[in-house]
Simulated assay, not measured.
Amino acid sequence: MQRIPCPERDDWRVTAARCGFDFYELDGERYWDERAYYAFTIAEIELGIEEPTAELEQMCLALVERVVGDEALLRRLKIPQAVWPLLAESWRRRDGSLYGRFDLSYQGGRTPAKLLEYNADTPTSIFEAAVFQWTWLEQAIERRILPGRADQYNSIHERLIERWRALGKRRRVHLAGLTANAEDATTLAYLADTAAQAGLTTTILDVADIGWRETGGGFVDLEDGNIALAFKLYPWEWMFRDAFSVKLAQAPTQWIEPPWKAILSNKGILPLLWQMHEGHPNLLPAYFEDDPKAAGLGPSFVRKPIYSREGANVSLVSDGVAVSTQEGPYGAEGFIRQAPAPLPDFGGVFPVIGSWLVDHQPCGLSIREDTSPITGNRSRFLPHAIL
């Protein structure tokens, strides 16, 4: 694993605009950054990232099986009791999942990748991972920025189309999110495009525009059309707090991601996975903060809210002192503590590997780097290549 400086394409901003990638800068700072790329060997991809990702996914699915039938664990994860039947029924039906992303600390070579967290419900940056970094690869080879035999670990786009065919069965899919947010809007538009390529009819709408029809009971769009199949770029824990959550069990809507994914999008799975597979090479020791065993981590650990996104309210504690902290609105439900997994340091920048799954199968990676060891919303996205 190397970080290799390289010239950027002089027209990459024009290319981004043509692709609909209009958040390549955030608050005047680069989000997409191709002044360097990360290079891997094929062995690092297959053995260091792909195989552990597949194994971690199976461990997570086994954890869901355990949690849905255990009231004590559902309480431990701070999942509202009112939605327990919704999760259990969704799991019993094996409601289909579209995609997810593990965040890994990986030093390269034969050092095992370590699971930092699982973005199981509403992972973003998929457009950049599936499309824009592939475009970079093709053009970088054409312009001799990369060797002619360079490749990329990336079949995300093709896998999404294939998965939509199985999930959608040529139906209409409504894709809902916070459409005023540029990143969310681009993600929704990209996923709508992959669904359309799979033969589905698509409608994009804001979450706030989802309505309810009392007669017959069901969610509807602005044209009063039934929402039978819905992709939501809106976290389950937010939905559970919203007023319409009481309607979720009554509606015939099939949700993507399905309700049982609410379990895996919770950072409480990290101590539960460690409890089930203590000593596993791809896991870090982790405990709920009120567990006496948490003291065994000593004075240095990572403190994470049970619910959190984009690194918010995460703290790196070293010798009892918080040396790096991200502000945010989370933490009311409690915290977990996780053993630190130092990220590789490439001259003061720290990369996190995003390992993507579609239909539970590993199929690509993305890299976010920052000058802080906590990856946040403003962390840069760099492309990768297999050399």
Rank of each mutant, 00 (worst) to 15 (best):
W91E: 03
V302N: 00
I126F: 08
L146E: 02
T111D: 13
V358Q: 07
R3E: 09
V207M: 08
A198H: 06
W255E: 01
V358D: 01
Q338R: 11
F231K: 06
T124F: 01
G20L: 01
I263G: 09
E34W: 11
Q152I: 15
A82W: 04
V64H: 04
R337Y: 06
V83S: 04
I156C: 03
F301M: 06
E46P: 01
I42Y: 12
R18Q: 13
E158N: 13
R337D: 02
E310C: 10
L270E: 00
S105N: 05
I42N: 13
F346G: 05
T179M: 14
L284E: 10
G296V: 07
E278Q: 15
K261W: 06
W32F: 14
G298M: 01
D345S: 10
A180F: 13
K261H: 01
D290A: 14
A192Q: 03
P259G: 09
V64W: 05
L233D: 05
L229G: 05
V352I: 15
V317P: 03
P329I: 01
R9A: 12
F301P: 06
Q81S: 10
H360C: 12
L222E: 15
F244Y: 15
E46M: 07
T122G: 07
S372R: 07
P123L: 12
Q107P: 00
T41K: 11
W274Q: 00
T215C: 02
D151R: 15
F240A: 11
I353C: 09
E51L: 14
D359E: 06
A192H: 05
Y287T: 02
K114S: 09
I156N: 10
L178M: 05
P112A: 06
I145Y: 00
L283V: 06
C19K: 05
R30D: 12
R18H: 12
T122C: 14
A120F: 08
P85Q: 08
V14T: 14
